[in-house]
Simulated assay, not measured.
Amino acid sequence: MVFSFAACAGKSVNNEGESQTEETTTIRIGAMAGPTAMGMVKLRKDSENGNTKNTYAFEDFATDASAFVTPLATGEIDIAAVPSNLAANIYNKTEGKVQVVAVNTLGVLNLVERGNTVNSISDLKGKTIYATGMGAVPEYTIRYILSGNGLDADKDVDIVWCSDTTEALSKLKSEDGAIAVLPQPFVTAASAQISGLRVVMDLNEAWEKINNNSKIVTGVIVVRKEFAEKYPEQLKKFIDEYNESVAYTSSNIDETAQLIAEYGIVASEAIANKALPKCHIVCYINNNMRSALEGFLQVLYDQNPKSVGGSMPKDDFYYEY
């Protein structure tokens, strides 16, 4: 389902003071359900209420990020909130037809234990770790952090890859002392169901101890390059309005949690309320965006070039606002 409105035009003034008609259009937006979409809920609600400078058409939040690959490539949507490495993959697949305009979500992985034997990454030596995301960002992140702490992911620990968070939850429920690396807001939901489950650490902390030149970047906002070139003023307004939406998210937890539940991103408003501060919703643009994202993609590339589409994105991948 798409909430859409008619295209429109506005007035601008050129350098000679002459009034010009500035072409505008409805901006079609997609986002993956989960933390990647959380910073967008206030903007979506404002759009539905007619309280935005731009006119937006929001697609229903998707559970599969790959759902945006073809629509971005073919021009069916203009802007999307997607996983960071998927953005690089789309860039390479389309030969540079998308650009990143913002980092919108930092790391959401937590190390959890149903017990009290692990208090640092080094304590994981000889342990079994349950995790999801084999062959994707979670795996590369876990391997990098283990390596940075002197542990070989294939020799020093036993990583058991679960097919999904439901399988991981069953492992945590059935095994005393179970250890896992899992994402928010799932960790918050699991903690409500499993007595004694504790968060050992936020993996952002572990990352920053071994790499202070980048951050774990879970999600980004991408735009079709053609759209960015044709509607630069509308794109700037979107970035401003998205930034305001993120600021609202950070300072109005209760109201945002209600919207997150309303849009089905998290089933429970109570879980959304507890998890939101732990999901690291941000809006990094320009140099802050590039420094955080480029270093993270380099870590992924060094482990497996296919993780970012075969090659590191070039300078034009990063949109300068």
Score class of each variant (00 low, 15 high):
F5G: 05
F5A: 11
F5L: 15
G10Y: 14
E18S: 11
S19L: 15
E22G: 05
T26C: 10
I29M: 00
G30N: 07
A31Y: 08
M32T: 09
A33K: 05
G50V: 10
A65M: 06
A67L: 10
F68L: 05
V69P: 04
T70K: 13
T70A: 13
P71C: 11
A80M: 04
A81E: 03
N85D: 15
A88V: 12
A88L: 11
A88G: 11
E95V: 12
V100Y: 06
N104C: 10
V108N: 08
L111Q: 08
G115N: 01
G115W: 07
G115K: 04
N116R: 03
K125Y: 09
G126Y: 14
K127R: 15
I129D: 14
G133H: 14
G135E: 14
A136G: 08
V137E: 09
E139D: 03
I142S: 01
S147V: 09
N149Q: 13
L151H: 02
A153K: 07
D154G: 00
D156E: 02
C162K: 05
S163G: 08
D164G: 11
S170M: 13
K171E: 10
K173P: 06
K173S: 07
E175I: 13
D176E: 15
F186P: 01
A190E: 10
S191F: 03
I194F: 11
I194E: 11
L203Y: 06
N204A: 02
E205S: 11
K209N: 12
K215F: 04
K215A: 02
I216E: 02
T218F: 03
G219N: 01
G219A: 01
V223C: 14
R224Q: 12
Y231V: 04
Y242T: 10
S245R: 03
Y248G: 07
Y248F: 15
Y248T: 01
T249W: 02
S250C: 02
S251G: 08
N252S: 08
E255R: 04
E255W: 00
E262P: 00
G264K: 01
V266D: 05
V266Y: 03
A267N: 05
S268N: 07
S268W: 09
N273Y: 14
P277G: 12
P277Y: 07
H280N: 14
C283R: 10
M289W: 00
S291I: 15
S291W: 12
L293Q: 07
F296T: 11
V299Q: 12
G309P: 01
G310E: 01
S311M: 15
P313V: 09
D315P: 00
E320Q: 00
Y321D: 04
Y321S: 05
